[in-house]
Design a binder for these strands. Structure first.
Length: 557
RNA sequence: UGACCCAUGGUGUAAUUGGUAACACACCAGUUUUUGGUUCUGGCAUUCUAGGUUCAAGUCCUAGUGGGUCAACCA
């Protein structure tokens, strides 16, 4: 589904200009190129959205290419999770998934070509020496003593490198560009290094691997990618990208950079995400608090919500920090239209309806979704004793409190109007039971009692209610940008209350019958989804997001 | 003592390419509601600064200011 938007972002303008000029015969071909070294997160979702949606908009294609040039960091586990997450988000790449590693032979050929052309050389210096010669952004670098090695010698050494004659770190292949270039990346970048390591895709076939700068643009070119869109941090790589393409005379893919999307209270650094997992601060990559797609999926976020969030936040080149409120607003909006309404009491307090006959029960219909007339209904049981929310009864209520209090009237959602008549307290004065009378003529749907109430409360029958475990999530950090503090580690902002487990909640029996992936709204509480940890004995539910609560907001003031 | 990118309300994006600031979220005040949910209505900026070009500048020019990025045998 193409998210509607009349105004064009800068990438669309570039594409339309290309289309106008007839570049590449009007072909639009993009790609999403993750390195399979971790799980996809909300930042990747934006990149995926940009590539797939933009290509689709112009009748183009989008490849999925694993940028796997560093064998020591990559694994098939990640390849599989990445594919799954992209599909879940709602996208299907063109043809089979592609791998940069499938182009190793071609890329190797490109390297020999560069050597033949006299613009690449073997450098035998140590990493430290090479770094020292790079200079600084304000001071030009100095040439390597091996810079003018003869072509034949370079070729022989490079072939020996490939043949495995040298250990890791013994030498590298560098492009001969300009050690005085103001762009540090143009100062004779390394393009091949020795790594005697097993690759997830090519096994032990290679012991030399191309660097990013000598693999990405080449792969784009091999796939005849027309618009290679990446995030701003690769901006300085563009001249390098272009230089190689020109030297090699291969298909002229072009790179464009957009600002990555940052979301408040979320982090998108793979390294730091991994640390959260390793330190046990979350239960895994798919912990519902994580910014990973697998985490958001488990949290109950809908893929269409994430897509719409991406559309709403736009594409541009300035730094940005999206508020979590927007994400939550989109999620609530989508869930409001889809979630099945059920009643769950999170902090139970017994309510005895004294004039309701002992032993009697009745079944009352409850709409599955008032937003959707076709959603049907399910039945709730009512009996003499039910559970209500402890916070819904107050002995000494403040002004504008519409809930239950001594002598006050209130409606039990989908059932009857009741009036509190009495209550029981324990030795400490805590209310342990509330007594009330109900008005039979006030039955929901056929109310002719004439009683007006301001409050409607949710409740759960005590004879049929089932105990459930609720996992209440909050933002993972106490600071909107936990990684932006130079003097503090991001873990210092870890929110210890980011997960609160409630194992005393009681849900209406209908919860037993809802599907694994069916979005739920616990009326007056929030949106929930069943968790994979649920067992036959006990349902576990994750809170996706709370409902707006203007009463709580009012109370704070 | 460098190069490159960026600059519109609290946040994020827009502005028919020079024609008089729009939309969403947030916030505030109401409305609706058998969820204090939902709905609906109203309120909330003269576009970083200073010059300049022009009948007209958020859009163009100049100079500042502010923010970001750039050195890994990572991607």
């Amino acid at each position: 589904m193409s998210e509607e938007k009349e105004s064009k972002n800068f990438i669309q303008e570039i594409i339309e200009a290309d289309l106008e000029a007839g570049t590449h015969e009007g072909r639009v071909h993009m790609r999403f190129p993750p390195e399979p070294n971790g799980y996809l997160h909300i930042g990747h979702a934006k990149a995926i959205w940009i590539n797939f949606e933009t290509a689709k908009m112009y009748g183009g294609k989008t490849n999925l290419r694993f940028d796997d040039t560093n064998p020591v960091k990559e694994d098939v586990e990640y390849v599989n999770s990445i594919k799954k997450d992209i599909n879940w988000l709602g996208y299907q790449w063109e043809g089979d998934a592609l791998y940069t590693s499938d182009y190793f032979e071609i890329i190797y050929g490109y390297a020999e070509d560069l050597i033949q052309k006299g613009v690449a050389y073997i450098d035998e210096q140590s990493a430290e020496d090479i770094a020292a010669q790079k200079g600084t952004p304000t001071k030009p670098g100095t040439n390597s003593p091996h810079r003018d090695r003869p072509v034949e010698e370079n070729l022989q050494l490079f072939r020996d490198m490939r043949a495995g004659k040298y250990p890791d770190g013994a030498m590298v292949l560098r492009a001969k560009i300009d050690m005085a270039a103001p762009n540090m990346l143009m100062r004779d970048p390394l393009i091949y290094r020795i790594k005697h390591a097993t690759h997830h895709n090519t096994g032990d076939e290679w012991c030399i691997y191309p660097m990013y700068d000598f693999a990405h643009g080449q792969s784009d070119s091999i796939e005849k990618i027309t618009h290679s869109c990446c995030s701003l941090e690769f901006m300085h790589h563009r001249p390098v990208y272009n230089w190689f393409i020109e030297q090699l005379g291969i298909f002229p893919s072009k790179q464009y950079e957009f600002a990555r999307m940052n979301v408040a209270y979320m982090i998108t650094s793979k390294r730091r995400l991994l640390k959260l997992v390793e330190e046990g601060l979350v239960t895994g990559w798919d912990d519902p608090r994580m910014s990973t797609l697998s985490g958001m999926r488990r949290r109950g976020y809908l893929p269409e919500s994430i897509r719409r969030f991406c559309a709403l936040t736009g594409v541009q080149k300035r730094d940005n920090l999206q508020e979590m409120e927007l994400l939550e607003s989109v999620i609530r909006d989508d869930l409001n239209a889809k979630a099945t309404r059920v009643m769950v009491v999170t902090d139970p307090l017994k309510l005895v309806i004294t004039n309701y006959p002992e032993g009697q029960t009745e079944e009352l219909p409850s709409k599955n979704n008032p937003q959707d007339e076709n959603s049907g209904h399910h039945l709730m049981t009512l009996s003499r004793e039910i559970w209500i929310e402890r916070g819904d009864f107050m002995l000494d209520p403040p002004k504008k409190y519409f809930r239950l209090a001594p002598d006050k009237h209130v409606r039990l959602k989908g059932a009857y109007i009741i009036q509190a008549t009495d209550h029981v307290t324990d030795a400490s004065g805590k209310v342990t039971e509330v007594h009330c009378q109900y008005f039979p003529e006030s039955k929901s749907g056929s109310d002719n009692s004439g009683i007006k109430v301001k409050g409607t409360m949710h409740w759960v029958d005590s004879t049929s209610g089932i105990p459930v475990e609720l996992r209440i999530y909050d933002r993972l950090f106490t600071d909107p940008t936990p990684t932006s503090h130079e003097d503090k580690d991001f873990l210092e902002f870890y929110n210890k209350e980011s997960l609160v487990v409630n194992d005393q909640a009681i849900a209406e029996k209908h919860l037993q019958e809802v599907g694994e992936t069916e979005p739920l709204q616990f009326m007056r509480k929030g949106y929930f989804i069943k968790d994979q940890d649920s067992t036959k004995e006990k349902l576990v539910l994750n809170r996706t997001v709370a409902l707006r609560d203007s009463w709580a907001k009012m109370q704070k003031k």
